[in-house]
């Protein structure tokens, strides 16, 4: 009897674990299939985007409207962020440099860190928040209210009108915003240098640009084009592929910001590695 009971127990144990194993495998397979389906959708989206970007009927008017929306309307936010970035960096770094008697290095140090790293990354993150979420929410609400379908049935290509123009405008305008933020950052730094000390505008700028070569601008400007493209792409992708309910508009906007910010950081890491390899 005891032998019989133990056989039943072993059998029960085996059945239970094999069931759990099959459930876990199924779950993992489903997760993998969802992941690969998403990857396929992203590639398809990019393929269509590239194809439509080189079509004859480029929506020039909408492109300029988007440049205005992205560039001009983000200017106040980028101005404040850029100026504060330079000011804070100067105020924080000054005491350390004073201790080493290296205050004259302050303008150069601030300008190099602003141009090479802080300006592009922080401005891109600000843009991911404002522009990426804006695109995600706008296209998401257009999807929910059937405006994208209305374009399709009117024989108007929504990819060409909505996505190509936005991604192109973001790719062009975000590098310009980054350069603008760099300039205001250096101005903010000059203001910061004059809070505790006194330095003339001409002297500050000659010291700020003495350690900076054209080659320092190049990788920063190049990566900022990638930042712009990725912010536009992610914002449009998330909005364009939003679900049906109103809740999906918020989800699209939110996930656009998160994904775009993450990709900005990853692109920055890759760009730094490549620059390091090429310049060493």
């Amino acid at each position: 009897m005891r032998k019989f009971t133990s056989v039943i127990k072993v059998k029960g144990f085996a059945v239970h674990h094999s069931r759990r194993l099959s459930e876990t495998t199924l779950e993992k397979t489903q997760i993998a299939s969802i992941f690969f389906a998403e990857v396929a959708r992203v590639f398809l989206f990019i393929t269509v985007l590239v194809r439509e970007s080189f079509s004859r009927d480029f929506e020039l008017r909408e492109f300029f409207r988007q440049c205005f929306q992205i560039g001009y309307k983000t200017l106040p936010l980028v101005s404040v962020t850029g100026a504060i970035m330079g000011l804070v960096l100067t105020i924080q770094s000054r005491p350390v440099l004073v201790d080493f008697g290296a205050v004259s290095w302050l303008p150069g140090m601030v300008s190099v860190s602003l141009i090479k790293e802080m300006g592009p990354v922080i401005t891109a993150l600000i843009c991911a928040g404002k522009i990426g979420s804006g695109m995600g929410a706008e296209l998401g609400s257009m999807k929910v209210t059937e405006q994208i379908e209305a374009m399709e049935v009117s024989s108007i290509n929504p990819m060409r009108f909505l996505v190509v123009t936005r991604v192109a405008a973001a790719t062009l305008m975000i590098p310009l915003l980054i350069l603008y933020a760099d300039a205001l950052g250096i101005l903010g730094s000059w203001a910061g240098a004059n809070i505790k000390g006194s330095v003339s505008f001409v002297l500050f700028f000659s010291q700020a640009f003495s350690p900076v070569d054209f080659i320092d601008f190049l990788p920063a400007v190049l990566k900022s084009f990638f930042f712009g493209a990725v912010i536009g792409l992610v914002g449009c992708y998330k909005g364009y592929n939003a679900g049906r309910g109103t809740e999906s508009v918020g989800v699209a906007a939110n996930s656009a910001v998160v994904m775009a910010s993450l990709l900005v950081i990853i692109i920055d890491l890759i760009a730094v590695q490549i620059t390091d390899m090429l310049l060493l």
Partner: peptide, 17 residues
Amino acid sequence: ELRKKIGFLFQSGALYD
């Protein structure tokens, strides 16, 4: 080309905001 011959009135109106 075919869609140009068909008008579709959406339930929500789908006007461009």
